[in-house]
């Protein structure tokens, strides 16, 4: 009984903390301690969110399409690279530093170049999402593939299993928890990358909306879109959790 109530408290505490922050914020701005044109109150942000809701949804749709297409391609690219690097050791040694190098290039530096090369349509956005998401996927899958027990591989080989069968039966399922761990990171990366990319030039998307409201000094709308982006990221992460539970039933029953 005690433990149950403790776990409920544990779940409520983060909500209480968020509510507390919002309350303090509301009090500070409501009393006029900080002028409204510098920091809108949470209620103003809520009102802005409601009034601009159709517009926000329209832009969110664009951003989500970019993020999903990019993430999907990022997963495919990451999986292919990880498979090849697991299969061919020299490739692993040669390509690993190169892949790490791609991650040291700042997003804000590469994004304008992509716009320059591929225009203001969706293409550069999707490319930037691929660039930021394939890396965690590749690294985690490689770790997963390589974590297979040598004795187990030897046993299956002695039972006549080929390389492909071992990959399918042992390595792939073994890499699943690693994969989901990186997918959780990648979904939020994907949204952020898409927004940054839109910010630097485009016709639609939350990033474009952001630059517009910033230019008109509508900080209430600015905060509304920030909250929306956070909410979308959290929701997607939760979705990944649910997907993971569905895909890995043995974890739950173990």
């Amino acid at each position: 009984m005690k433990r149950k109530s403790a776990s409920i408290t544990g779940k409520l505490l983060p909500f209480a903390a968020v509510a507390g922050v919002l309350l303090v914020w509301q009090i500070v701005t409501g009393l006029g301690l900080i002028p409204k044109y510098l920091l809108p109150s949470p209620l103003d942000v809520g009102r802005a969110f409601v009034s601009d809701f159709p517009l926000l949804m329209e832009h969110a749709r664009v951003t989500l399409i970019e993020a999903f297409l990019g993430l999907f391609c990022g997963i495919v690219v990451g999986f292919l690279i990880a498979c090849l690097m697991d299969r061919f050791e020299p490739l692993y040694l040669a390509a690993y530093p190169l892949i790490i190098l791609t991650q040291t290039i700042p997003t804000v530096a590469i994004a304008p170049l992509l716009v320059l090369w591929f225009g203001y349509e969706m293409m550069p956005k999707i490319l930037l999402v691929i660039l930021t998401t394939f890396f965690p996927i590749t690294v985690s899958l490689l770790t997963g593939f390589r974590s297979a027990d040598e004795d187990l591989i030897r046993l299956l080989t002695s039972m006549g299993a080929g390389r492909g069968q071992i990959f399918r039966i042992v390595k792939c399922p073994q890499a699943l928890p690693h994969f989901f761990g990186s997918l959780r990171i990648s979904v939020s990366y994907a949204i952020v990358a898409a927004v940054i990319s839109e910010w630097l030039g485009g016709f639609g998307g939350l990033g474009v909306y952001m630059t517009r409201v910033k230019k008109s000094f509508s900080f209430d709308k600015m905060f509304a879109v920030i909250f929306l982006i956070s909410a979308i990221s959290l929701l997607l992460m939760k979705l990944v959790d649910i997907l993971q539970k569905k895909c890995m039933p043995w974890e739950e029953k173990g």
């Binding site: 027990d149 004795d151 187990l152 046993l155 002695s158 039972m159 890995m248 043995w250």
Partner: peptide, 17 residues
């Protein structure tokens, strides 16, 4: 290999099957 089967101290069962 493949003619005689063997078993070790570790059960080597696949946890996800």
């Amino acid at each position: 290999s493949g003619h005689v089967s063997y078993m070790l101290q570790k059960d080597l069962l696949l946890p996800f099957r």
